[in-house]
């Protein structure tokens, strides 16, 4: 059991990070902190993906005339992580912009307070 955890240490760390981020996303009342939780979840996924492509003793996949034939790591997960980071940045920026607008409109970014104020305005 312990051996398995040690062998898959990056994946286990990713799962723990994902849990922390998910908990933040669900339980925090502050919208900004929710976004932070979301970003922690993103990082967990990136960590998992990036660690999948690593090969022990491998070098960065820059093929060239090195005079020897090294073991390269897998380039595919790196490219996928790049895609993920771009999407994560975009989503973060968009949600932050939304939060700024919410703050300008209602004067708060605490979720329950926000719901109360929005409900009062509806009446």
């Amino acid at each position: 059991m312990l051996e398995t955890i040690l062998q898959n240490r990056f994946a286990v760390t990713a799962v723990i990070l994902f849990g922390i981020g998910f908990m933040n996303l669900l339980l925090q009342q502050n919208l900004l902190k929710k976004v932070v939780g979301f970003n922690i979840m993103d990082s967990a996924v990136f960590l998992l993906l990036a660690s999948l492509g690593y090969i022990d003793g491998g070098v960065a996949p820059i093929v060239g005339d090195r005079g020897f034939d090294p073991l390269y790591i897998n380039p595919i997960p790196s490219g996928l992580v790049l895609t993920g980071i771009v999407v994560s940045v975009s989503i973060t920026a968009f949600s932050l912009a939304l939060i700024q607008r919410i703050y300008r409109r209602y004067g708060t970014i605490e979720l329950w307070e926000l719901l109360e104020r929005a409900g009062k305005e509806d009446d």
């Binding site: 994946a11 286990v12 690593y54 090969i55 022990d56 073991l71 595919i76």
Partner: peptide, 27 residues
């Protein structure tokens, strides 16, 4: 919900191929 999700993910992670092996299915 979070604990259930983490349990499922952890169970999945523990059956994954070993980290850093050259003959993992991803390579």
């Amino acid at each position: 919900i979070c604990l259930a999700l983490m349990g499922i993910l952890m169970a999945a992670v523990l059956t994954m191929p070993t980290f850093g092996e050259a003959d993992n299915p991803i390579n």
